Amino acid sequence: MTTNRIGVFGANGRMGLALLEAATIKEQTQLTGAYVRSSSSLLGINVNQINSAADKNISFSDDSTIDNVDVLIDFTLPAGMKNHLKIALAHKIPMVIGTTGLTSDDMAQLHDAAKYIPIVFARNYSVGVNVLLNLVQTAATKLGDDLDIEIFEAHHRYKVDAPSGTALAIGESIAHAKGWDHDEVAVYDRSQVETAKSQNEIGYSVLRGGDIVGEHTTYFATMGERLELTHKASSRMTFALGAIRAAGWLRNKPAGLYDMQDVLDLK
């Protein structure tokens, strides 16, 4: 089986470091690029000094030195991701993207880039979360219409976008199953609402605190009973290993925009 050579953007970030470790320990995968900003103090330092299992020949470098890479992975911020996408296009290298907080214009750029290179974009690379996306669709269609649907998510204090990309993916899956336009039924703030809640809406609640890696609960409540579907992540390695799995699946795929449902054959 061919070894998949991986390059990681934002290699010194929280997810970047997890991706470096995942690319090092995953079978049939080789870390060949660890990219940081040109102003980073890590430039030229061997990755082995931070991740003892990493290849001693790999040093942190900036994105002008991309070489010997089969798939690029990006879990940075939207502005950085768009720059990295241009680099992937210029080198014709497939890309796995886990950046959240993207605008409709950002997504349009992804769709355009996917005409030329294969891209996996997912808001969450956990296998469990992607199974959850299927489960909430089943619940939404089988439990009837007299139903209150709410989504709660909790993350660490440093997470900027809210609701999380995963929470939105859950809501979008439910809206799709119900035949709703998500943007029309999503409710993010009820502080100024003076009417009772409608059953034709999806409410979002957010918590930010401490070092919470990620927790998502979907509530399906009706008179007399409540179904709660919850996923809790205790380590970023869950997402990192999922991204490495996606990178292995993506190699040699035709140009197109894919997601983890494709990778896991859940569609």
Score class of each variant (00 low, 15 high):
61 S>A: 03
56 K>D: 05
23 A>Y: 01
134 N>A: 15
149 I>L: 12
181 D>T: 07
12 N>S: 14
115 K>V: 00
232 K>E: 14
228 E>N: 07
169 A>S: 14
170 I>K: 04
10 G>L: 05
223 M>D: 14
4 N>V: 15
216 H>G: 09
231 H>M: 14
42 L>Y: 06
248 G>L: 04
22 A>Y: 07
196 A>V: 08
199 Q>M: 07
47 V>E: 01
142 K>T: 15
149 I>F: 12
128 G>P: 09
189 D>C: 03
46 N>W: 08
207 L>T: 08
59 S>Q: 08
86 K>A: 10
37 R>H: 07
16 G>R: 03
47 V>M: 01
127 V>W: 08
252 N>S: 15
210 G>S: 12
171 G>T: 13
203 G>L: 13
174 I>Q: 11
165 G>A: 05
239 F>E: 12
101 G>I: 06
16 G>A: 03
94 P>A: 06
204 Y>Q: 04
181 D>P: 05
16 G>K: 03
14 R>L: 15
254 P>Q: 15
100 T>L: 10
118 P>F: 02
156 H>W: 10
44 G>R: 02
137 Q>A: 14
120 V>D: 02
176 H>P: 00
220 F>E: 01
237 M>N: 10
227 L>G: 06
171 G>Y: 11
208 R>P: 06
155 H>V: 06
11 A>F: 00
262 D>Q: 13
167 A>C: 04
13 G>A: 03
49 Q>L: 14
64 S>I: 04
206 V>I: 15
205 S>V: 10
204 Y>T: 05
178 K>L: 10
126 S>K: 00
96 V>K: 01
204 Y>M: 11
85 L>H: 02
136 V>H: 01
41 S>V: 14
152 F>M: 05
101 G>D: 12
141 T>E: 13
103 T>Y: 07
144 G>K: 09
58 I>V: 12
193 V>E: 13
244 I>R: 00
206 V>P: 09
133 L>G: 09
149 I>H: 13
112 D>C: 02
117 I>E: 09
167 A>N: 02
9 F>G: 00
241 L>P: 05
41 S>C: 07
201 E>F: 01
94 P>M: 08
244 I>G: 06
7 G>L: 01
12 N>T: 04
52 S>W: 03
240 A>W: 01
103 T>R: 11
205 S>T: 13
113 A>M: 00
229 L>A: 13
22 A>N: 08
118 P>A: 07
137 Q>T: 04
211 D>Y: 06
174 I>K: 10
207 L>H: 13
131 V>P: 06
210 G>H: 15
201 E>N: 04
137 Q>M: 09
64 S>P: 03
257 L>M: 15
26 K>R: 14
121 F>A: 09
